[in-house]
């Protein structure tokens, strides 16, 4: 699976405004809503589900990365947003470090394989230090779109 299969170019946030977990998740779900990838009536429910998942254990997995996610019946296919924080976000990460890169995923409950393959794609790229550094240094949504396209073309992780 490639970024293009689930990341919405209209849901890319090069400079996350919020500085705490729930605000970040609200911001990114709102971006998915604006992009037309989720329904307006479903946003609050999706935010609540993602926060409930965070209560089970932070998705801040270390190396300045978080992957908040949920399975939600309102989506027919996997949708994703990506955001970058200059100052870092307190995400209660497992390594205690602030989070700068956030990949948010909402997937249909009956498509667990798609969810796993999206995680596989994200994590494979995140293992590449150059990809992470470029993403953190991105100044615009266009920069990030280009970076994700390059990742999809195997220009980073193998």
């Amino acid at each position: 699976m490639k970024f293009a299969d689930f990341m919405s170019n209209e849901a890319i946030i090069p400079q996350i405004a919020a500085d705490e977990k729930q605000g970040v998740i609200r911001e990114m779900v709102a971006a998915l809503q604006t992009a037309g990838r989720i329904g307006a009536d479903d946003a609050d429910s999706i935010i609540a589900a993602i926060m409930k998942r965070e209560e089970l254990g932070s998705t801040g997995i270390g190396r300045g990365v978080a992957v908040p996610h949920t399975k939600h019946p309102s989506v027919g296919q996997l949708v994703g947003a990506v955001g970058v924080s200059r100052d870092g976000i307190d995400f209660n990460s497992l390594d205690g470090e602030k989070v700068q890169l956030v990949f948010l995923l909402v997937s249909p409950p009956d498509r667990p394989g798609d969810h796993l393959r999206a995680l596989e794609n994200i994590s494979r790229q995140l293992r590449d230090d150059t990809f992470c550094r470029f993403l953190k240094q991105s100044k615009s949504a266009d920069d990030i779109v280009q970076l994700l396209e390059e990742a999809d073309n195997n220009q980073f992780a193998t």
Binding site: I61, L94, L119, S123, L126
Partner: peptide, 12 residues
């Protein structure tokens, strides 16, 4: 290593 584990995408 969590990130490395995620690259496996192990299905049911």
């Amino acid at each position: 290593h969590i990130i490395d584990m995620m690259t496996l995408a192990v299905e049911n």
